[in-house]
Simulated assay, not measured.
Amino acid sequence: MKQTDLGESPYSGPILDMKRIRQFMVLAQTLNFRRAAERLHMAQPPLTVSIQKLESDLGVRLFERGGAGGVTLTVAGQAALVEARRLLFHNSQLIATVQATAAGTGGCLRIGFVGSTTHGVLQRIVRQFRADFPAVQLVLKEATSVQIADRVERGELDVGLVRTPLMASAQVRLKPLLTERFVAAVPLGNALTAHAELRMDMLAGEPFVFYTRGDAAGLQAMAMLACQQAGFLPRIAQEATQVQTVLSLVESGLGVALVPSIMQNSPNPGVAYRAIHDIAPAADIGLALLVPEMANPAVPGFQEAALKCFAVG
Rank of each mutant, 00 (worst) to 15 (best):
G107Q: 04
V172H: 10
F89P: 09
C108A: 12
D132L: 11
R39L: 12
V243W: 03
A216R: 05
A170D: 08
A43L: 11
A223K: 04
A143S: 10
M263K: 07
V75S: 11
N296H: 06
K19A: 14
A194R: 14
A230H: 03
F113R: 09
D57A: 13
D158Q: 06
A282L: 09
I21W: 05
R130H: 09
L6R: 11
Q244A: 15
T245E: 03
L138G: 01
A298P: 04
M263D: 06
A298I: 08
S9M: 12
A170N: 08
A288Q: 05
A79P: 00
L287P: 04
P207Y: 01
T30V: 12
A283D: 03
Q29A: 15
T117E: 05
E251R: 10
G255A: 11
V126W: 00
D5A: 12
R274V: 12
A204M: 02
E206N: 03
V49K: 05
V243F: 06
G255Y: 06
G205C: 05
T101H: 04
A194P: 02
T48P: 00
H41V: 11
T105C: 06
R199M: 13
L58P: 05
S252I: 03
Q238F: 14
V159I: 14
Q264W: 02
T105G: 06
P269S: 14
K19T: 15
D57E: 13
Q229I: 03
E8G: 10
N91V: 00
Y273D: 10
L225P: 00
